Simulated assay, not measured.
Amino acid sequence: MTREVKLNELTELLTDAEYPLEVETARSRFDDVELVYADGSEPLSDVLKRVESSTFESAEDAQTSIFNVVPVEGVGEPGQSEGEG
């Protein structure tokens, strides 16, 4: 069963892991997680393939690494404008 996790809920998911954590281990552990973006979704394991480091030292390190490879279009909230008026 797939777990859907919004980007703003990622911290909670990552704090449940033990660190340091190998990226390959994270891919296996979170292979059922679908990251929900503002404009769609993507399997977390696919996102982790784009991370350059091989080990996360902490949940914060993991989150930062993931946010650095998430598509820019996925970060905004649905219906959010670039500034009106």
Rank of each mutant, 00 (worst) to 15 (best):
L7T: 04
L7G: 05
E9W: 00
L10C: 10
L10P: 00
T11E: 14
T11F: 09
T11G: 08
T11C: 01
T11A: 13
E12R: 05
E12Q: 04
E12Y: 02
L14E: 05
T15Y: 06
T15C: 05
T15F: 02
A17C: 08
A17K: 07
A17P: 02
A17Q: 08
E18T: 14
E18V: 12
Y19L: 08
Y19I: 09
P20S: 04
P20N: 10
E22R: 14
E22Q: 14
V23N: 02
V23L: 03
V23S: 03
V23F: 06
A26Y: 01
A26H: 12
R27T: 10
R27N: 05
R29E: 15
R29V: 10
F30E: 07
F30G: 02
F30K: 02
D31K: 12
D31H: 15
D31G: 03
D31S: 13
D32M: 00
D32Y: 10
D32L: 03
V33W: 08
V33M: 04
E34L: 15
L35K: 10
L35I: 15
L35T: 08
Y37T: 05
D39T: 14
D39N: 15
G40N: 11
S41N: 14
S41D: 11
S41P: 09
S41A: 15
E42W: 03
E42F: 07
P43M: 14
P43I: 05
S45D: 14
S45H: 14
S45R: 14
D46M: 08
D46S: 12
D46G: 03
V47R: 02
V47F: 07
L48C: 11
K49W: 08
V51S: 04
S53V: 12
S53R: 13
S53L: 09
S54P: 00
T55M: 06
F56H: 02
F56I: 04
F56D: 00
E57S: 13
S58V: 04
S58Y: 05
S58D: 09
S58H: 04
S58I: 10
A59I: 05
D61M: 06
D61W: 01
A62C: 10
Q63W: 06
Q63V: 07
T64F: 03
S65W: 01
I66D: 01
I66P: 00
F67A: 05
F67T: 06
F67H: 11
N68L: 10
P71L: 10
V72E: 11
E73L: 09
E73V: 08
E73Y: 06
G74K: 11
G74V: 11
G74H: 04
V75S: 03
V75G: 01
G76S: 12
E77T: 10
E77G: 03
P78F: 11
